[in-house]
Design a protein around this nucleic acid. Structure first.
Lengths: 191, 191
DNA sequence: CGGTCTCTTGACGGAGTTCAAAGCTAGTGG
DNA sequence: CCACTAGCTTTGAACTCCGTCAAGAGACCG
């Protein structure tokens, strides 16, 4: 929970009472690996903040092919943002990859927080802005870099994930098949 | 300018006085095609809202290859968000493609607005959230769809841009070469 | 242990790139 | 207002990156 306060205080200060208010409207829960937190086709009203463990979100195309969008580990937020913001059925799944402890914020409670602590409106604005910049950079990478360049960049950016996440998931995140990823990795190691 | 008020009032109401306050801190300017509004390597302190015309933003790799990130036409916002938010030198260029009239909001005036009209904090949060969802969908498309599928989707989503923007730019937006785009288009027309 | 899931390796195929050349369009100056 | 040029679009051939299919070799879990 301390991790959440730190995360917020990177952008807005929180008094002890404000921390307590925040704590009173969120829930903390632990889930084992393979738990499905969000089902495509349903309306999401939860946002997750990861205290420990790893999550992934992904969409499923043609009922077969999974495409991973993101991972989330300690200190990261995750949600089916489309569904959460619009309150319409979403297209994403969220799954626990590694036993996780999560702070859960519901849509209703987030609105309560905006009323009682307007400064959190500022925090979530900044959070969205930063995430937006990160998405834009990743989009640019996917448009202009080769799979190998994206992989090297991923290794530098998220070194810990390479140990913790099975490599077919990393392949999917990068947008290549597990087979090609394996060959690419072998080729890089030969240097 | 009416367009801007409409854009904001989709998410938060604005009284006449609030509209006047907003109007008093922004500037409206017109620029001919080919104007460079933002240079990579410089710090951006402006956000643009397009009243008429078309803009593009792009990055340049190896001093040669341009990669277009986005277009902006009537009713769209555009900025080098990384540089604007972080106040560090950015990597993007912003260029006028079609003679444009823009509302210009500076970083300083945006902070003033947040002080005087806290509800705009809410507006820009929602703007960032919606943009985030759109970026995520586009990222997903680039990871899992073929160039042809992306092109069809682009045509449905932005039919007007196809007329107004030269097709090498659309090719770049989609992440393919102009040559391949031309062949792909010819193939689609044969159906 | 057994069976399922993951990773590796190879042969082949296809989507998209690169390079080059030619036609077409549109902006510019005289 | 025409002519000229520079940039845009088209087309083709050769090539590269990455996907698909298939088979075998680990690795993990009940």
């Amino acid at each position: 929970m301390e991790l959440l306060f730190q995360n917020i205080q990177k952008h807005v200060p929180l008094s002890l009472e404000e921390q307590q208010l925040l704590q009173s409207v969120v829930e903390i829960n632990s889930y084992p690996a393979k738990t499905i937190l969000q089902q495509a086709g349903t309306i999401s009203n939860q946002t997750y903040f990861v205290l420990s463990g790893v999550l992934r979100n992904f969409s499923v195309k043609d009922n077969i092919h999974e495409q991973i969008l993101h991972f989330a580990c300690e200190g990261w937020w995750m949600a089916d943002m489309y569904s959460y913001f619009s309150q319409k059925p979403g297209n994403l799944f969220i799954e626990v990859l590694e036993d996780a402890t999560l702070v859960i914020l519901t849509k209703d409670n987030q609105e309560v927080l905006y009323q009682k602590l307007p400064k959190l409106e500022r925090f979530f604005r900044i959070l969205a802005e930063n995430s937006l910049v990160a998405h834009q950079e990743r989009l640019l990478d996917n448009l202009s870099l080769s799979a190998e360049e994206r992989f090297v960049k991923f290794c530098n950016k998220y070194p810990s994930l390479i140990q913790r996440v099975s490599q077919k998931y990393i392949a999917s995140y990068l947008g290549v098949t597990p087979e090609f990823f394996s060959k690419m990795k072998a080729k890089l190691l030969r240097k």
